[in-house]
Design a binder for these strands. Structure first.
Lengths: 263, 263
DNA sequence: TAGTGGTCTAGACCACTTT
DNA sequence: AAGTGGTCTAGACCACTAC
């Protein structure tokens, strides 16, 4: 069988609609003309069949070997295609069991959590930073449980502001576990924020974030240059390095701030 | 050279600290004992060197071929490791240029946008759905521009509620492009929401989401069983299928609702 | 034009899981 | 015990891009 006379066996026990046939023609075209079929073509075709219900939700896909035969390619190529579909949440794979179409395909949006400085500069505004408060304190109870450090452990408490074109952009309140990052006690936090310092000094391995909506109280309203009761987005973030808690931060964004992403 | 007598050349022109030496011992151990080194080991070691500034921010990594020699493995194995680090945002790869450590590593959080029903059931509550309004309307101007459909095109306007244990969970207001999904006109939306119907009938290929904080007006407060002025998280979502706009939805969550994720 | 990453192949062995 | 995905190899060719 030469690469130019490929025929595909298409008995999946499923009636294919006209659209499916048309798409298959395109696939056949690819196979016949290109010497090598790319994993992207396989990935997209498998995804199409899933959405066209050729392989219904919950059903088992052919094995990698079978698909490799159908597409006339190496098993590794099929593997790469199916691995990406598994990452994207379309299928689930288990050894010995096979590859199964997920019941409820969960697509994941990717959210970039960037530094305030980056966020401000990305919108073509001028960034300004100001340190408001900096204290060594005993960890209050709620923080000790949030960070999972000893109650009354010493932590560095920081309040600072980020401005875009001199208008309030974000109020940041942060607590840093000194046991994890002893150097932070002597860190220069007057010219740039603790977030930037930490990213350099103690890259984290795990993080947890939570978005919520809050109403500004009097103090928050003052900092953000708005009136009490205004709704604002708040982002709370806890990070760990290899299991050791590093910091807990609460960042409140100016009214009208919006977190956007595509997927 | 037998697999049991591997030596690695470790001249990166960089002074390695004690910790780095210790870690390298572990890597050597792996290479010496295991017949095959896994891409995970390479990925983690490269990541470690980046964080230890063995390869500083902005610098060029060795080529795949060089790393393959160092780790005594195939180039494909190195490629897989570096590809994952690129996906995770630690390095940037360009043909001919090579692999470069990113200046500002942007880690991405993965956010699962699930159906209201799934979100409710995940918190072990009982889900209830209610259709509030359903009208065929002419697209208002703002929607036409949001969805990029002809002004005054016909759209299906839907308002519905999602409850958790009979308490308001989410108010959903949605506009569906009838040109893209003509069948929706006759869809049964009395027993389950338009989101679920659409996922089955018209899987999207692209989506854009935006989180913001809103203050409840009188009507919203009534639906959500709260008082006017309460802060709530609002999620706006637009989806397309192959460039054709499908739907725009605005989902307002009950006070106290929180979007969480780990990364 | 040359160097680097991107991908495919054919084969092999391994690891996990179900039977 | 057997079947399926997971991964590695050694080699090959391609595609992009800096020079």
């Amino acid at each position: 069988m030469t690469p130019n006379s490929v025929t595909l066996s298409l008995h999946h026990g499923v009636f294919l609609n006209r659209y499916a046939h048309f798409e298959l023609e395109k696939v056949l075209f690819h196979v016949a003309v290109q010497k090598r079929i790319s994993f992207q073509v396989i990935r997209d075709e498998v995804k199409r069949r899933i959405e066209a219900r050729v392989w219904p939700q919950g059903s088992l896909l052919p094995t990698e070997t079978q698909l490799a035969e159908e597409f006339n390619c190496a098993r590794a190529t099929v593997n790469r295609a199916l691995r990406e579909l598994a990452e994207q949440g379309f299928v689930e794979r288990k050894r010995k069991s096979g590859t199964r179409v997920k019941k409820e395909p969960r697509r994941q949006a990717k959210l970039e959590i960037s530094l305030a400085r980056q966020a401000v500069e990305n919108q073509n505004s001028t960034y300004r930073y100001a340190l408001v408060e900096r204290n060594l304190v005993d960890s209050p109870g709620w923080l000790a449980s949030q960070l999972d450090v000893a109650p009354a452990a010493r932590v560095l408490h920081i309040i600072c502001m980020h401005y875009a074109d001199n208008r309030p952009f974000q109020l940041e309140e942060r607590w840093i576990n000194i046991d994890a990052v002893p150097d932070v006690v002597h860190a220069d936090l007057d010219s740039s924020g603790p977030h930037e310092w930490l990213l350099n000094a103690a890259p984290f391995t795990d993080a947890e974030i939570a978005f919520s909506a809050v109403s500004a109280d009097g103090r928050l309203a003052e900092y953000m240059g708005t009136t009490a009761g205004t709704s604002m987005i708040q982002l709370e973030r806890t990070t760990w390095k290899d299991g050791q808690p590093i910091t807990f931060a609460r960042m409140t964004h100016h009214p009208g701030y919006c977190v956007r992403t595509r997927y």
